[in-house]
């Protein structure tokens, strides 16, 4: 058993498919870390006592407001911070040099901030190309127009009854996070929707 090493298996085996100029692919090799910021990204809110703290857009720690994201850099690592709600941020980065990335998060949010590794809990689909917006708008109720849902914005919502996080990574590019156990059903939903708008 000495020579045995464990290798993570992506939920869809590294799926990739093109539909004309539109590409749907599984994003693999991502580290996904949940950060509970309830006492970390703290600001004083008028009319509240010191114990009533909340993360807000003018947070001194520069945590993104709910529904938006930003990127922090440290030691050539780019960490995307996706703010899901007032007290929960997902940090997403390429899984390498993870210790340095965790250190960067601790430097930003404090040594005692609760962080949870969720890397293998999600399946992430990357959808890019001219059909991506029209395919997604058929299966989610979020207004995807770029004036409203801009690059870097995200929404925690539901698609085909599956709880998802939808992130706009570019003009015609999205990343969609779904629970790993839904991987195949979720892929089927997105594939079907692309077929329907072709």
């Amino acid at each position: 058993m000495d020579n045995t090493s464990l290798k993570a298996k992506p939920p869809l085996g590294g799926y990739r498919k093109t539909f004309g100029d539109t590409t749907l692919q599984e994003m693999t090799g991502l580290a996904i870390i949940a950060i509970a910021t309830s006492n970390g990204g703290a600001v004083k809110v008028p009319g509240r006592d010191h114990n009533q703290l909340a993360v807000s857009a003018n947070d001194p720690l520069d945590a993104p407001a709910p529904g938006t994201s930003n990127v922090i850099h440290q030691d050539q690592i780019a960490i995307r911070l996706l703010s899901l709600r007032q007290d929960l941020i997902l940090a997403v980065f390429t899984a390498q040099n993870n210790r340095n990335a965790i250190e960067a998060l601790r430097n930003k949010f404090g040594r005692t901030i609760p962080i949870t590794d969720q890397s293998d809990a999600w399946v992430v689909l990357g959808l890019s190309g001219p059909l991506s917006e029209s395919a997604l708008e058929r299966i989610c109720s979020i207004d995807l127009h770029q004036d409203v849902f801009a690059n870097g914005d995200l929404a925690q919502t539901r698609m085909e009854h599956i709880s998802t996080i939808l992130f706009r990574s570019g003009d015609e590019a999205f990343q969609i996070f779904a629970p790993r156990s839904y991987a195949r059903s979720f892929l089927h939903a997105v594939e079907t929707s692309i077929h329907n708008v072709r």
Binding site: P66, G67, Q86, S141, I142, D143, A155, T157
Partner: peptide
């Protein structure tokens, strides 16, 4: 108030 307009089916 934080996330903007959402469909009632999410609630």
């Amino acid at each position: 108030p934080l996330l903007g307009p959402r469909d009632a089916s999410e609630f």
